[in-house]
């Protein structure tokens, strides 16, 4: 998502009306409610919602946690665009000419109550694509003595996809997800590409074959809304196109993964450094690098 870098320097209108779409599942009733909030410079939409919850109406339901764009739980449709409420400044979405901000739950996710949406389907799809490294030798993967080699440029290739915080904004903006439940969605498919391109993953063939259905990249029509709303610049739209062309080449027998990295190790045993200041020195009798150790109770006097 492109952020307005000047938003933080802007001063929002003194009073902003927040028009919130409410939903009550017991009565199956849906309605819009207006709240007027006094704003301050730097106020985010989440701050405003919390102010409404604290001071005007305690019954509003929403989900949030970190308040700093990391946990991905505060996705909402703000002025018609899926955004993270904690990363959207009021000054960015309200102006003196139109001091109104509409807040709706994310589309394409079922609404539980007010702004709270149910991510079960979204995470089911995420799980279905096996979002973890797969190696033929399971033991090698499970015993943590080794690490898989990876060159900086290989890391750079997948780095942007690893930034996904599973906020579901891309899923909510996707017009294909809006029309069919079967499509895996931009987030899950970006994960598939992330592992197909990852040199440490060995299951690229299985992954490509798994998504060669109408759930996969061939259902994408490249509206690119996913890339336009992603708050972490993950670019799922491009990942799907890469996946699609890789799949076509694979079916023509022209695609082969560039490199599958080997394990390196065992890792050198790390010894505590000698030049540490006394307060940072490990406590006697505790080996910080030992595996499977029981939690050790350290006497308080040893710590201070």
């Amino acid at each position: 998502m492109s952020f307005d870098p000047k938003a933080a320097t802007k001063i929002p209108p003194k009073k902003v009306t927040f028009r919130i779409k409410r939903f009550n599942p017991e009565e199956d009733r849906e309605w819009w409610e207006d709240y007027e909030v006094e704003t301050y410079r730097g106020m985010t939409v989440l701050d405003a919602l919390l102010k409404i919850k604290e001071e005007i109406d305690h019954t509003i339901v929403m989900r949030y946690s970190c308040r700093m764009g990391v946990c991905g739980s505060c996705g909402m449709t703000i002025n018609g665009m899926p955004r993270l409420a904690c990363q959207t400044q009021v000054a960015e979405v309200a102006s003196d000419g139109k001091p109104v901000v509409t807040v709706e739950p994310l589309k394409n996710h079922p609404v539980m109550r007010d702004l709270l949406t149910d991510f079960t389907k979204f995470f089911d799809k995420h799980r279905r694509v096996k979002p973890y490294l797969l190696r033929k030798d399971v033991d090698e993967r499970e015993t943590g003595d080794y690490e898989y080699e990876m060159l900086p440029e290989e890391h750079y290739n997948i780095y942007e996809y690893t930034l996904c915080i599973a906020c579901g904004l891309c899923y909510s903006a996707c017009p294909v997800v809006a029309s069919t439940d079967r499509f895996l969605g931009p987030q899950a498919l970006a994960y598939v590409w992330r592992y197909v391109a990852d040199p440490r993953d060995e299951a690229w063939k299985e992954r490509l074959e798994m998504i060669d259905t109408d759930e996969g990249p061939f259902s994408c029509h490249y509206a690119a809304s996913c890339s336009a709303v992603c708050p972490k610049m993950v670019d799922p739209g491009a990942a799907i196109q890469r996946l699609r062309s890789a799949l076509i080449k694979y079916r023509l027998g022209l695609y082969k993964k560039k490199r599958i990295s080997k394990k390196v190790g065992p890792m050198e045993e790390k010894k505590p450094r000698k030049d540490l200041p006394p307060e940072a020195k490990p406590v006697d009798g505790v080996d910080p690098w030992a595996k499977d150790q029981e939690p050790v109770k350290i006497p308080v006097e040893k710590l201070i």
Partner: peptide
Amino acid sequence: GKENKPGWIASINPWVLRIVNNPE
């Protein structure tokens, strides 16, 4: 929960979602 899917007809309605920087 209430299904909240705009459907394919609505997905081509530019007023359902107004995404900035998205002429695609």
